[in-house]
Simulated scan of single mutants.
Amino acid sequence: MPAPSPTTRATFLRSTAESFVKAFIAGTSPCSILDTYFTSSAQIHEHGPAWANARLPFLGKTFTGRRQPGSTPSHDGGSTCDDYYDLLSRTLSFHPTERTAPASVEFVVDAEALGPGGEEEGKGVVTVKMSAAFKSVKSGEGWEEEFVYVLSGFDEEGRIGRQELWADPLSAWVAVGE
């Protein structure tokens, strides 16, 4: 069977990315999101300064793969994609606004681009800018911000191999407090 055309693959990747974003906004459980939208060896990396890890333990490190079935969540920072979502949800709460879900045309797709893993990952990169309100679980202090997802390394079934995030770590740092 011939490989799909770049246009068809771009439409497919856009659809996958949109579906992932809608599931995230709807509050779908992280485990379901990882099961549905990510490869088993996926990576998640939220960019940010290493000095912020004391308050924001999900920043600046790469979380890889999934937690083994039946194992308990790590309380030491862990390193799986499940641990990323655990750390994030113990630190911040997410509150979608009317501007959170971008229109389909705002998903920038390059079906032939290689992500940071190069040839080892699948082809395709999708970039999307979103906005939402966040709140510190600890202090209750909130803020609104724009953030960017870059999804790459898609497998043939359209599952995401890598998610990179760029957000506003200074606002999160201040909101979380000491």
Rank of each mutant, 00 (worst) to 15 (best):
T7S: 10
T7N: 09
A10S: 15
T11I: 06
T11C: 09
F12W: 06
F12T: 04
L13R: 06
L13T: 12
R14S: 10
R14T: 04
T16R: 12
A17W: 05
A17N: 07
E18K: 09
F20D: 02
F20M: 12
F20A: 06
K22S: 15
K22T: 14
A23H: 08
A23D: 15
A23F: 08
F24V: 07
F24Q: 03
I25E: 04
A26H: 08
G27L: 02
S29I: 08
P30T: 09
P30L: 10
C31G: 14
C31T: 10
S32L: 08
S32V: 12
I33L: 14
T36N: 09
T39Q: 09
T39V: 05
S41K: 14
A42C: 13
A42Q: 05
A42L: 13
Q43R: 13
Q43S: 15
Q43N: 11
H45A: 07
E46I: 00
E46M: 06
H47R: 06
H47Y: 09
G48R: 00
G48S: 04
P49E: 12
P49A: 14
A50P: 03
A50Y: 02
A50G: 03
A50V: 11
W51R: 05
A54Q: 13
A54D: 15
A54I: 08
R55G: 11
R55M: 01
L56N: 05
P57A: 12
P57E: 07
F58G: 00
L59E: 04
G60N: 03
G60V: 00
K61E: 10
K61V: 09
F63V: 01
T64P: 00
G65I: 09
G65M: 11
R66T: 04
R67Y: 02
Q68V: 05
T72S: 09
T72Y: 00
P73Y: 00
P73R: 04
P73A: 09
H75G: 12
D76S: 13
D76E: 12
S79E: 11
T80C: 00
C81Y: 01
C81A: 13
C81N: 02
D82F: 03
D82L: 02
D83I: 01
Y85T: 06
D86C: 01
S89C: 02
R90N: 14
R90Y: 01
R90S: 10
T91Y: 02
T91I: 06
S93W: 01
P96K: 06
R99V: 03
P102N: 09
A103C: 05
S104F: 07
F107K: 08
V108F: 14
V108P: 02
V108N: 11
V109N: 07
D110P: 08
D110H: 08
A111R: 14
A111Q: 12
L114C: 02
L114K: 13
P116W: 01
P116S: 12
G118T: 09
E119R: 14
E119D: 13
V126P: 05
T127N: 08
V128F: 07
V128P: 10
K129N: 11
S131D: 12
S131H: 07
S131F: 01
A132Q: 07
A133H: 11
S136M: 05
S136W: 06
S136K: 03
V137P: 02
S139P: 08
